[in-house]
Computed example of a mutant assay.
Amino acid sequence: MKRLNLFILIAALAPLTTVAHAEDTRQPASPFDAGISATHHATGKIVKVDGTAGMLTLAHGPVTTLNWPPMTMAFAVQNTKLLDTLSKGQTIDFEFTYDGSNYLITDVQ
């Protein structure tokens, strides 16, 4: 009788353990998918200007709209002519967005 009760208990709990161990296969939400501002603002010091690649490497401060700490990273530049006016060591305020594959600087002040 005890074996029958144990069997019934295990059979009743089996579906619950399957659900508890199911993996969540959803991709983590990007801040850009969550409706957070599509344009972001930061201030940074230019570390490198790469006109050939159309990239600007910046040591930037925090980006509150993305919950980013200060860091150094490379950004693509929407208008590569902008790179002609910038130089290493210069501090800039800039706006950027995400184009699906790159963080893209759209404006510099």
Rank of each mutant, 00 (worst) to 15 (best):
M1W: 07
K2L: 10
R3Y: 08
L4D: 13
L4K: 14
L4E: 12
L4C: 04
I8W: 06
L9Y: 11
A12E: 08
A12Q: 10
L13T: 10
L13K: 01
P15H: 08
P15C: 06
L16Y: 15
L16A: 14
L16R: 00
T18V: 11
T18F: 13
T18E: 08
V19N: 04
V19P: 01
V19A: 14
V19S: 06
V19L: 12
A20V: 02
A22H: 04
A22G: 05
E23S: 13
T25K: 15
T25I: 01
R26H: 09
Q27R: 13
Q27G: 04
Q27E: 10
P28T: 09
P28F: 08
P28H: 05
S30C: 13
S30F: 04
P31R: 09
P31A: 10
F32I: 11
I36D: 12
A38I: 00
T39L: 09
H40L: 12
H40P: 00
H41C: 01
A42H: 02
T43N: 07
T43A: 11
T43W: 04
K45I: 07
K45V: 15
K45P: 00
I46Y: 03
V49W: 06
D50Y: 13
D50A: 14
D50T: 12
G51A: 10
T52L: 13
T52H: 09
T52S: 14
A53N: 14
G54V: 03
T57F: 06
L58D: 03
L58V: 08
L58R: 00
A59G: 05
A59R: 13
H60P: 06
G61I: 02
P62C: 01
V63Q: 10
V63P: 04
T64W: 03
T64Y: 05
T64F: 06
T65Y: 02
T65C: 05
L66K: 07
L66N: 11
W68T: 00
P69E: 12
P69V: 09
P70I: 07
P70W: 12
T72N: 06
T72F: 03
T72M: 10
T72H: 04
F75A: 03
A76T: 05
V77D: 00
V77G: 00
N79D: 15
L82E: 08
L83S: 00
L83R: 00
L83C: 09
D84V: 01
D84T: 12
T85K: 12
L86C: 05
L86A: 03
S87D: 14
K88Y: 02
G89T: 07
T91M: 07
I92P: 02
F94Y: 08
T97P: 02
T97A: 08
T97Y: 00
Y98Q: 07
Y98H: 13
D99V: 07
S101C: 01
N102P: 11
N102H: 13
Y103L: 14
Y103F: 14
Y103S: 01
Y103V: 06
L104P: 01
I105L: 08
I105F: 02
T106P: 02
V108A: 04
V108L: 08
V108N: 03
